[in-house]
Nucleic acid binder design. Structure first.
Lengths: 300, 300
DNA sequence: CCCGATGCTTAAGTTAAAGTTGCGGTTGCT
DNA sequence: AGCAACCGCAACTTTAACTTAAGCATCGGG
């Protein structure tokens, strides 16, 4: 049988992106991990990683093993929690991953409520930008993931994981105060020549904007690229362009210098979902409940 | 994280029923396993097994860990097969578990056909009497299980496993040649006072007979107890009693000295199913196909 | 009634494997 | 060109798993 510790090394290396980074995370030295990987490869008779100077990349076989390995590591994680729970111990740790804006807005109140209800559970939160995070959930590195999907962005496969949509967050058109189009419910097609502000190519809100515009047969002109909605609002406030911003962000931002309205015609929205393993440790359902509640009552 | 090797020890001990037997299977000595179990228990802070003179019994916590452990061990098994397959290696091993009468009748022709089509796969077969075998499938000890369910016998939960019914095998009433009831489609209710031959209490065909009879409001008188259908047929042939026998068995038995017919009224049948993990190694679907085919063309 | 068999544990010794340290090589960036 | 980051190799150290041997308790048979 394969050595689970070695498989775990592969999982950690894959998640961290390099042997050195994984070694840092696991509190080992790099050569230790490298040796374990080499032994695993020799044992299996095929290469699992392509070692380069900028880190390592998984081979085809490595990706296959990664999928299994994540499940193995995750089951071992949950096994420990489940046994301790069965023996009457209170659960101790709950690690949460969330995309940045959720971490600022939706999560804090859920965290606070959860902390009051379950003071013995140690909570941790880390930034995970979609579409990442599924592997970490499977492997137990995260117990709960808060992720989103913008229109036009394909959703990662969640084999063996439970995913549940907790909020549909509409994308609103945000214009500088006094902009001529304000209040006229303009369609994206009418705004194609405007100066748009959104993420760089490949960033999800860029894809969402382009796919929504493409549905109306136009290609927006992107003048300013930022993935940070705070920056985007500041630019809009300064009158240099317009953008498409989730309502959740707007609800929590100072409502000065800009106006927002749904774009005419289309109704683009991002979906916010939670992801966890099928047999999660005890505190996960409770936290999910808090998050659902938090999602139902704006301003989040 | 829990040590997977120690978890595997628990799984093997649970399946074998004692530390000594598990040690034998794993080619270790008993103290080695005992020490590993002790460390696992200390690590988790709770007892996993009750050690007694007649072997060990799992505690509540032990059963919880067993369920997770079986999945861990099974995933590690399949991981290795999957990686080797991805690297282009031909699969090597396929282990099959079947109940005794399937092993005599239904399986051999499927094994032969499979062996011709995939000569490089090493096949192994072991006896597993229902309701056992699910744990071994989960843990990868078996790749494929052929099991049955008699009416009135509750089916084990198959969490995370794939189960598929491949054959419904009717139970026929078998009488000695020349028995007065022969050819009259007698109901079980009319035969309650006959000398019945079937398994001991708790054996599945005993349960099936009693539940079918109970449905007609009678309790059969069991005169001879054997779980072996060959013995049962020999007794019937000798004229000492009557029995309920799956058609599959009859089709393969010498058709002398007895007559068979469906009991009037009820139509009891045993269901024969195959069970495997959700992501089985490559040869499993092929073997399942052979078995389906084998099940469709009597005399099996 | 004792004796042997069975099954698990404890204790001590051996051995195998994992991890660390240190050095060298390659690549990419400033 | 030089520095920093990352990986690989080799020698040494240490941890821990396994074995052997002995001990304790229970149970069944002579």
């Amino acid at each position: 049988m394969l050595d689970a510790d070695r498989v775990r090394v592969l999982v950690e290396v894959a998640h961290a992106g390099s042997i050195a980074a994984a070694a840092e995370n696991m509190a080992f030295t790099a050569p230790a991990l490298s040796q374990q990987l080499t032994k695993l490869e020799r044992e299996l008779g095929c290469a699992l990683v392509e070692r380069s100077r900028t880190g390592v990349r998984l081979t085809r076989a490595g990706r296959v093993l990664l999928a299994y390995g994540e499940r193995v590591v995750g089951e071992l994680h949950d096994a420990e929690s489940a046994v301790r729970a069965a023996a009457g111990e209170a659960p101790v740790r709950l690690s949460l991953g969330a995309f940045a804006s959720a971490g600022k807005l939706l999560v804090p109140q859920a965290l606070a409520a959860f902390g009051q209800a379950h003071p013995q559970v140690r909570l941790s939160l880390s930034d995970v930008e979609p579409p990442d995070g599924y592997g970490q959930v499977t492997s137990g590195e995260l117990d709960l993931l808060i992720t989103h999907r913008y229109p036009g962005v394909q959703v990662p496969a969640a084999a063996g994981l439970h995913r549940e949509r907790i909020l549909v967050d509409p994308l609103l058109l945000v214009l500088p105060e006094g902009h001529p189009a304000a209040g006229t419910a303009p369609r994206l097609a009418d705004l194609a020549e405007q100066e748009w502000i959104c993420g760089a190519p490949g960033i999800s809100n860029r894809i969402a904007l382009e796919s929504a515009a493409a549905a109306e047969g136009v290609r927006p002109a992107v003048a300013y690229e930022t993935r940070d909605y705070e920056v985007m609002l500041a630019l809009i406030r300064a009158g240099v362009g317009i953008g498409l911003v989730p309502r959740m962000i707007l609800d929590a931002a100072p409502a000065e210098g800009w106006v927002a309205e749904p774009p005419g015609g289309a109704a683009p929205a991002r979906e916010i979902s939670i992801v966890h393993r099928r047999r999660p440790p005890a505190p996960v359902p409770a936290m999910v409940d808090m998050l659902r509640r938090s999602a139902r009552c704006p301003p989040y």
